[in-house]
Amino acid sequence: MALVQYSDSEDTDPEPQPPKKKLRKDNASEKLPPLPAAFRDLYATNTRVSVHDDPSLHGGRKRVIPHVEGNWPTHIYLEWIPGRGELKMLEGILSKCNSRLEDQKLRMHSLLYSDLGVQLPLHISLSRPVVLRTEQKESFLELLRHRVTNSGIQRFNVVPNSLYWVSNYERTRWFLVLRVARPENNALNRLLRISNESLAVYGQPPLYASPTAQRENGEKSEKHTSQPTKEEQDYSECFHISLAWSLTEPSAEDKTRTMGIDLGPVGQTEISFDCVKAKIGNVVSSLPLK
C-alpha cells in the first residue's frame, strides 16, 4: 500500500513539553554564602612562571630567599581580607598618596590587587621571611600550634592610626604601610614573642627583637607559655599592614607628605583577627585563637 503524504500543517499535535524554567535574577537581598576561610589558603601561592629568579617577571623585585631544594620559605602572619567598602577607602588613600608625591621616579605598586586585578589579602607580619629545612617543617608547625593554642590569647581587633614608610631588611624595597594601634591584652606583642621564640629553636632570626634578646628567649624554649613580662620590649609601633611598595626610596619630603594624610574612616575601622597563619612553602596553616 502506498504511503500517504501529509503537509506540515496536517501534522498531529506534538507531545506537550514541560514548561521552561524561567531564569530568576538574584535579588539584592539574596547573596551567595561567603567562601570558607580555608579556601583562600589552598590558593595562596601564585603560579610559578620561572624556576630562576627573574625580576622582570615581578616588577623589578628580587627574590629575598632563592629557590634551593630542601629549603622551605616560611612566614608567620595575621591575615586581613578587606570588605568592599574598606577596599574603596584604601584605594582612596593610595590615590591621595600618589597625588602628593613629587618624585616622578617613585612608582608605587598597589598591594590591594594582583596584576590580573584580583583582590589580594593583606597582613600583619609576625616573622621575617625565613627558611626551614624539610625535616624541620612538621615539628616547627606543631611547636607553633602548641604555643598559640596554650597562650590564652583570644580573638582581637586592631585599628589603623597612621601612614608610614618602611623598608625590608635588605633595603631593596620600600613599603607604604598602615600602622595599627596597640590592641587590647597586648595581643600583637605576645604573638610576636611566640613566633620569635619558636623560630629561635630552629636557628632563625627574630622579627623586630634584637638577636641578643632572642638568644636569651631561645634558652627558655622548653616553656610553652607566652605571658608577657615587664622586661619585654614593646614593639607596638612596628606592627603594620603594607598597602603598596616601591623600588625607590621616597625622599624625606615625600615621606612627610604621605604620612600627613588623614586616614578618614579608615582610622575608625576595626580589623578582626581570629587565627595566626603559618605559610611554609606553598602550604598555609591556620592556627585559631580562642
Rank of each mutant, 00 (worst) to 15 (best):
W72C: 03
H52T: 15
W174P: 11
G152I: 13
K62M: 10
K96V: 14
H52Y: 11
E91H: 08
N46Q: 14
L126V: 07
L101P: 01
L163S: 01
G92Y: 06
R84G: 01
W72H: 12
E69K: 09
G117H: 07
T149F: 03
W72L: 08
V159R: 14
G85K: 10
S151I: 10
R61L: 15
S95H: 07
S114K: 02
P55F: 10
N157F: 14
N98Q: 14
L143C: 03
W165L: 09
G60W: 06
Q104R: 15
H109E: 13
H58E: 15
R100V: 15
I65Q: 11
K88C: 10
V158H: 01
L126M: 06
R48T: 12
K137R: 15
L106T: 12
P129Y: 02
I76L: 15
K88V: 12
H146S: 08
F140E: 02
K105V: 07
S56M: 05
H58L: 06
I93S: 00
R48P: 04
K96C: 07
R100D: 10
R171P: 01
R133P: 00
S50F: 05
R100Y: 04
G117Y: 09
R145D: 03
D54L: 14
V64D: 12
L42P: 00
S56L: 08
L116V: 09
E91N: 07
E69V: 09
I65W: 02
R173F: 01
R84N: 08
L112V: 13
P82A: 08
L42W: 04
L106H: 05
V51E: 11
L144R: 03
L87D: 06
S99K: 13
R145G: 06
S167E: 13
I153M: 05
H123I: 08
E86V: 03
A44K: 02
L144C: 10
S127K: 08
Q104C: 03
T74W: 01
N71P: 00
L126P: 00
L112K: 04
R48G: 11
W80T: 05
V118N: 12
E79K: 12
K62T: 13
W80F: 07
R147N: 12
W165C: 05
S151T: 13
T45N: 07
R133M: 09
L116P: 00
R107D: 09
I153Q: 03
V130A: 14
I76Q: 02
H67I: 09
Y77C: 06
E79W: 00
T149L: 04
P55M: 06
T47W: 08
K62W: 07
S50R: 09
V51K: 14
